[in-house]
Design a protein around this nucleic acid. Sequence first.
DNA 1: AAGCAAATCAACCGCGGGGGT
DNA 2: TACCCCCGCGGTTGATTTGCT
Length: 227
Amino acid sequence: MGRQPCCDKIGLKRGPWTIEEDHKLMNFILNNGIQCWRLVPKLAGLMRCGKSCRLRWINYLRPDLKRGALTEAEEDMIINLHSQLGNRWSKIAAHFPGRTDNEIKNHWNTRIKKKLKFLGIDPLTHKPIEENDDIKQQLVSEEINEKVKELPVKALDYPQGQLQNSTSSSSLNESLEIIGSSSEMFQNSHTFSRDDVYNPGLEDPFQNWIGSPIRWDLLDNFEENFL
DNA sequence: AAGCAAATCAACCGCGGGGGT
DNA sequence: TACCCCCGCGGTTGATTTGCT
């Protein structure tokens, strides 16, 4: 016997949420809280499955969400955490109050991965890409060099934690030298030293964010402002 | 201005884990 | 122990937006 679907999908609405649906879901959760996602759509008068409601709330409606693009500091932190945690987006997102795992995952897949590849760093292993790798060969082309110059990140912007999985800091320097030799973008680049290797003993400023309670008391005003 | 391609991101899907019975 | 149910996670899709010609 196969697994039962999470909900009866017949007649349920899919696709982008309307403002009216958002209002219904928001009002319901603010007034009743979240007991059981399966019941939320029925009680809120929505033709959606509970899963869809949960996703909409977490990724869009939650009042504690931080709007706007991720900052350079957040981006660096994501790279650092990814080198330690891999694709555990929810764990990574836990370090960024107001950011969602979906948002971070999307940002990683659409921007950070490309940025790392252009820097000659494998986004999966966080190690320098091998000499004969296609991507590194592409880096010597003029076309790619132009794109690299446009990147907002400099070599020194790469977080300290990146080196923890590398065999040595010199291997990364080699990688950066190869990139730098084909472009002048690194003329002011940072030379990595032993001090740059990730130091787990250092206090992580983002740790202070973890576990900070949601200011539910702010919800009273939020509903007023949102509607 | 129109058409196309690339980039972005909201939303969906399937699966696994954990709790309850 | 086995089964069921629900939640949450990570991968993927596809609609929309943006940029280029």
